[in-house]
Design a protein around this nucleic acid. Structure first.
Lengths: 136, 136
DNA sequence: TACTTGCTTCGAGTGCACTCCAACGTTTTA
DNA sequence: TAAAACGTTGGAGTGCACTCGAAGCAAGTA
């Protein structure tokens, strides 16, 4: 059941099957295959029978993609970033810019959410006072 | 062009046309009609010929809905909240709970985004150092 | 060996939140 | 008054991010 091949002391694994990765990341196997199809994964190794063997590096990448996903970045943009990584060193500047733009977006999003929090707090405090009006 | 009917000194307006509301909220006229259809708007007044006339109160509600939307709350949940408001005072408790749940969600979301920000900062700092490796 | 589980592919289906269309009526502007 | 701009409706279409199904091959278990 386990695709083993542990590296020496077994603390890290050389590779994982798709269902193991699904369990670890919370993504479905379908979604993992879909990520590969659309170019969001760097090339994933295969076993001699053609089954995917995900590496630690792949898991790291998926973790990063998960973070980007949390920011609301469209998949197409993540694919763009993945392409830049594949294209090598001469795309470093473009990648850094992309990350910095994303960083700014995340900051703005946090600010938005903090504003929203303030609005919610005001609303909730209206509900707290038992003064009869019907807040909306 | 202006649906006028200003209240005394003209600082607030008695009502707005759909395109005025679209301009003010950033939502499309299509979306505003759709909101009404699905029950996300309290009843909107109509002119004698059947055209929508949005009130200040409607604008306030749309502002609040906009905030809820920023939190990622599904439209169905917002409709639920709108229903509770329509049902009157005896739904106060349920509404307060809904807002408090939303508040907790927003806090969690902010935390997530701050984590993501930290990851982005690390990535970006790797790009900053000119040590030749290719960050992914 | 038979069974169960998991893997493959391609393509179709789902749910959400809009977004647009067609055909027609109303209001404003020149 | 004529033209342009804006409004109405119901229903269909769009884009995104999955999500699932079908048919078939491969590996581990009783």
């Amino acid at each position: 059941m386990i695709a083993s091949t542990a590296t020496s002391a077994g603390s890290t694994r050389a590779h994982y099957t798709i269902s193991e990765v699904a369990a670890l990341t919370g993504l479905s196997a379908h979604t993992l295959r879909w990520y590969e199809r659309i170019g969001l994964m760097p090339h994933v190794d295969r076993s001699h029978t053609g089954q995917r063997r995900f590496s630690e590096r792949d898991l790291g990448w998926l973790g990063f993609v998960g973070k980007l996903r949390l920011t609301g970045m469209p998949v197409a943009d993540m694919v763009r970033y993945a392409e830049l990584v594949r294209e090598g060193d001469h795309t470093r500047d473009e990648r850094r810019e992309l990350l910095e733009t994303t960083r700014r977006d995340v900051l703005a999003r946090i600010t938005e959410l903090q504003d929203t929090l303030a609005v919610l707090d005001i609303k909730i405090s209206h509900y707290g006072t038992a003064c009869g009006g019907t807040p909306t």
